[in-house]
């Protein structure tokens, strides 16, 4: 049990030992071990990202099918579960079409940068005890800062396409991202007030000693989930991509692998948002019987399924409602929540 719980930590330790031994044998400075370990973490994060995206795309299509009382994709593999692998191969082999009028370097740059924010954010999230690639003291602030960057490549894509729908979509992305950033930050602030630390692992330890923060801060949890959905541009906040009004929004002029990169980044952003919610509110990697990292994956999976459920239940919100809901309801609510939390914490 203990062995399975620590299996990834032990593997990382073993790899570090091998690197140390190799560097000593080659007569190179031992400081290089940290650089090589970063490469190992990089491989691990890429594998996690690709696997989770492959799985969640098919899971979303299946779940959407069941919600609408149809079977969903059911041709490739057992009951259709290999469908995304086929789709991924198809996307890799499609032609990259770049419009003549587009700003070509920026068009390419947007696709290259799309994957950066979720990758940097995943590095700081603890998948288990001691399983954060970067165990930063300012973990919450770092993740908050990095996830905000996710709207930049999308804005670049919208601008570079030289397409009116893309431009409108890009503007909507930024508008939505900066608006919902505020209630999200306030929701996280009230968590920090209770836990008294910025470090994600220590917040999980706090929840192990006391109780899950979702019971202490239910309002902050709900606001965080709503803002996370909005920041990931998911329905009912999928205005930037609204296919019935903006063709495909920002991604209209993207095809083939460049589109696949954005698609991958979108699912990884969802994974980051759900993972942060798990860590901050649902006790992260703590749980009985099963190993910690499995608990983390399970809880994240439940939150992602909620995202999918919301997407296939609610219709798209009108652009002006998106803003007024944020500034007139969520921001005052979270401010009030913070003040009440402050008073209660001072009294007890």
């Amino acid at each position: 049990m203990e062995f399975i719980n620590n299996i990834f930590v032990n593997i990382a330790g073993l790899v570090r030992w091998v690197f140390n031994w190799l560097l000593g044998w080659l007569g190179l400075p031992l400081g290089l071990t940290d650089v090589l370990m970063t490469a190992v973490y990089w491989v691990a994060i890429v594998v996690v990202c690709v696997l989770c995206a492959l799985f969640y795309v098919i899971w979303e299509r299946k779940l959407a099918g069941y919600i609408q009382r149809r079977p969903g994709p059911n041709r490739l593999g057992p009951n259709g579960w290999l469908q995304t692998i086929g789709d991924a191969i198809k996307l890799v082999m499609k032609e990259d079409i770049v419009p003549d009028k587009a700003d070509k370097p920026v068009h390419l740059l947007a696709a290259l940068l799309a994957f950066v924010p979720p990758m940097l954010a995943l590095a700081a999230i603890p998948f288990g005890e001691g399983m954060a690639a970067l165990d930063l003291k300012l973990g919450v602030v770092y993740v908050l800062a990095v996830t905000t960057l996710a709207s930049l490549p999308v804005l670049l894509a919208g601008y570079a396409s030289n397409n009116k729908y893309s431009l409108i979509g890009g503007m909507r992305v930024v508008n939505q991202a900066i608006s919902y950033e505020v209630p999200q930050a306030f929701a996280l602030l009230s968590v920090i007030m209770v836990a008294g630390t910025f470090n994600l692992t220590e917040i999980v330890h706090f929840q192990q000693q006391h109780l899950w923060l979702v019971f202490v801060q239910p309002l902050a949890f709900v606001v965080y989930i709503i803002s996370a959905v909005a920041e990931c541009n998911r329905a009912p906040f999928d205005l930037p991509e609204g296919e019935s009004e903006l063709t495909a929004g920002v991604f209209t002029e993207y095809s083939g692998m460049r589109y696949a990169l954005f698609y991958l980044a979108e699912y990884c952003n969802m994974f980051v948002a759900a993972g942060l919610a798990t860590t901050l509110f649902l006790g992260g990697f703590s749980g009985p019987f099963l190993p910690g990292w499995l608990w983390f994956i399970l809880k994240t999976f439940v939150i992602m399924s909620v995202f999918i459920w919301v997407r296939w239940t609610l219709p798209r919100i009108r652009a002006d409602y998106v803003l007024s809901f944020c500034w007139k309801i969520l921001v005052p609510l979270t401010l009030l929540n913070m003040l009440v939390t402050g008073v209660v914490l001072y009294l007890i």
């Binding site: 940290d34 650089v35 970063t38 490469a39 973490y41 990089w42 994060i45 890429v46 950066v116 990758m119 940097l120 590095a123 690639a133 970067l134």
Partner: peptide
Amino acid sequence: AVGLLFIG
């Protein structure tokens, strides 16, 4: 390491 991951 954050910078390295960015390049990665």
